[in-house]
Amino acid sequence: MRKTRLDTDRIRAARRLIDPMFLDTPQYRCEALEPELGCAVSIKLETANPVRSFKARGTEVVASRLAAHGQPAVVCASAGNLGQALAWSGRDRGLDVTVVASRHATAAKLDRVRALGARLELVDGDHELARDRAADIARRDGVRLLEDSLDLETCEGAATIGLELVAATPAFDTVLIALGGGALATGVGHVLKELAPEVEVICVQPLGAPAMTRSWRERRVVTTDSADTIADGVAGRCPIPAVLDDLLLVADDAVLVREESIVAGLRLLLDHAGLVAEPSAALGIAAVLEDRDRFAGRHVATIVCGGNVDPAAYRRWVGAPRAGAA
């Protein structure tokens, strides 16, 4: 039987390198959502930390190991959340952090990267161009290049969420995971397939940024010319072959959802769960909204993976809270 690049013992060891403030995030059954979705719903809330996303689980592992080996600098490309997380983890360990991002990335995320003390370089292009520029900087300066999803620390850091999902009660029979570069999906998926193989792993991606889902379906890397979605955290165009290989081993399904369903998911999370989520974090809710019959009578878990939003854009998406909202 083929195995992923990940290792469960290393994932358990990674927990010991992560600041406890990023671990054991709230996980609970959200009954207020259930009448709207027609199924039992558990939420894993990865926004309840200083960088408001799951990304710090991976950057804590990276920064800890860099500091331990006397490597003083690191560079990454980011749509915003990874950059914030790396800036936080690097600052606490005295690392020199450079983040490369698209000039069109969410302004609130970029502002937070700067506030955390990282050097921010902007490119006139999308995330794929930022990845190229980060690699150029790493070669030029001889520093560590952190490549999200390709580097195992990012996948195994994210996989610690899977350990917590498995340990919690009540049990669930399906987990819905936002799919972008693949660190979250392959990490959590690996743990579930090893420790709870009866749980169905479904990855969810926007219809406007479908590269990894198309690749999973065709079992080969499929790139796209563009990505057009409000879910900027998962808007990649060029899947990484090694990550796709892992995804093929752990995902039971990969689905695409429309933008209007993502917006509806954001509204439900706000109105019925009191949660401000970024679009990527609403993908699991969107998947249920688009296929209620599939999930009827089941208990699904979804990872609310980030909550960094541009306030003006968020107000446009969700509007005013509905009367009587929870």
Rank of each mutant, 00 (worst) to 15 (best):
R5E: 09
I11T: 11
L17F: 00
F22R: 07
Y28N: 05
P35T: 10
P35D: 10
E36I: 09
S42E: 12
S42M: 14
S53H: 03
S53Q: 01
F54Y: 15
A56C: 06
A56D: 03
G58M: 02
V62R: 11
H69A: 14
A73K: 02
G80Y: 02
G83H: 02
D92K: 15
D92Q: 15
V100E: 00
A108E: 12
K109C: 03
V113K: 02
R119Y: 05
R119I: 05
R119A: 08
L122E: 11
L129Y: 07
A130Q: 03
R140N: 09
R144A: 12
E147Y: 07
L152Q: 08
C155L: 07
G157H: 05
T160W: 08
I161F: 07
I161W: 07
L163G: 11
L165V: 15
A167I: 14
A167H: 09
P170L: 11
P170S: 09
A183N: 09
V188E: 10
E198V: 14
P210Y: 01
P210Q: 00
R214P: 08
R214K: 13
R214H: 14
V221Q: 04
S226F: 06
S226R: 14
A227K: 08
A242W: 00
V243L: 08
L244K: 07
D246I: 06
L247G: 11
D253S: 14
I262K: 05
H272I: 09
A273W: 02
A273Q: 00
G274C: 06
A277Y: 00
E278V: 03
S280H: 04
A287V: 01
A296W: 13
G297S: 08
R298A: 07
I303F: 08
G307R: 06
A312E: 15
A313P: 13
R316G: 13
R316T: 13
V318D: 02
G324K: 04
A325D: 01
